[in-house]
Amino acid sequence: MVPEREGGRERGPAGATATPRRTLRLDQPRPPRRRFLPEWDPEAFGRLSERIARFLGTGRFIVWMTVVIVLWVLWNIAAPAALRFDQYPFIFLTLMLSLQASYAAPLILLAQNRQDDRDRVNLEQDRKQNERSIADTEYLTREVAALRTGLGEVATRDWIRSELQDLLKELEERHRRDGRVVFPAERADHPGGRDAEDR
């Protein structure tokens, strides 16, 4: 027997009603859960902590804190008894300084952690940049070596000129032995020689 539906509830065979079952739909986002703790933006809180830690590490903070402590002590010593709020052992001042220190230490640690994270990212980027520079340098070194090797096999103008001069000397010596004049234009009666005619 199929259970009947009655206004969102299932009615069983004996007429008993069951609570409706909520099915989890995967095509819709989950409804937001209630949070009992306050929410904050960690990035904004980290920036604020860095600002505070940076201020705590300045001379201005030390001067202001010294001025406040001196005024506190002077007021509680020299003011009329009815207006003094912290008598001689200055317990309230000690409490305020302890409270300030208890907040300053975690804020400074948080700022240092953020700085360490930034330093780690910068070191990683520098390491990658160094690896790229080394790879580029090795590539350029191989290319320069290949160019030098290739240029060693190329005939230069000076080499061709020296080879031609050697050939010319060989021809002149051979024709001298045979008693013939090789280049009549280069005789003493033609001072410019062959190059002068070509020009």
Rank of each mutant, 00 (worst) to 15 (best):
Glu153Asp: 04
Arg176Asp: 10
Pro184Arg: 04
Glu153Trp: 04
Ala185Met: 10
Asp119Trp: 13
Asn122Gly: 04
His175Phe: 10
Arg142Ser: 06
Glu131Ile: 06
Glu138Ile: 06
Ala185Leu: 14
Glu143Trp: 04
Arg118Ile: 04
Arg180Val: 09
Ile134Ala: 11
Arg180Ala: 04
Arg132Tyr: 03
Glu163Phe: 05
Thr137Cys: 01
Lys169Gly: 10
Pro184Ile: 04
Asp117Leu: 08
Asp116Asn: 13
Thr137Arg: 09
Lys128Asn: 15
Trp159His: 09
Arg132Val: 01
Asp166Asn: 12
Gly152Tyr: 09
Leu164Val: 03
Gly179Arg: 03
Ser162Lys: 12
Val181Thr: 02
His175Trp: 08
Leu147Gly: 01
Val182His: 01
Leu167Ser: 03
Gly150Ile: 08
Val121Met: 11
Lys128Cys: 10
Arg180Thr: 08
Ile160Leu: 13
Glu138His: 03
Asp126Tyr: 09
Asn130Glu: 15
Asn122Pro: 01
Tyr139Ile: 02
Phe183Asn: 07
Arg118Val: 07
Glu124His: 14
Ser162His: 07
Val182Glu: 00
Val154Arg: 13
Leu168Phe: 08
Glu163Leu: 09
Leu147Met: 10
Gln125His: 11
Glu163Gln: 13
Leu151Ile: 08
Gly179Val: 04
Ala146Met: 10
Thr149Asp: 12
Glu173Ala: 14
Thr156Gly: 14
Val182Tyr: 04
Val154Met: 14
Glu173Asp: 14
Leu123Lys: 15
Leu171Ser: 00
Lys128Asp: 15
Ala135Gln: 02
Asn130Gly: 04
Leu171Asn: 01
Pro184Tyr: 04
Arg118Gly: 07
Asp126His: 10
Asp116Gly: 10
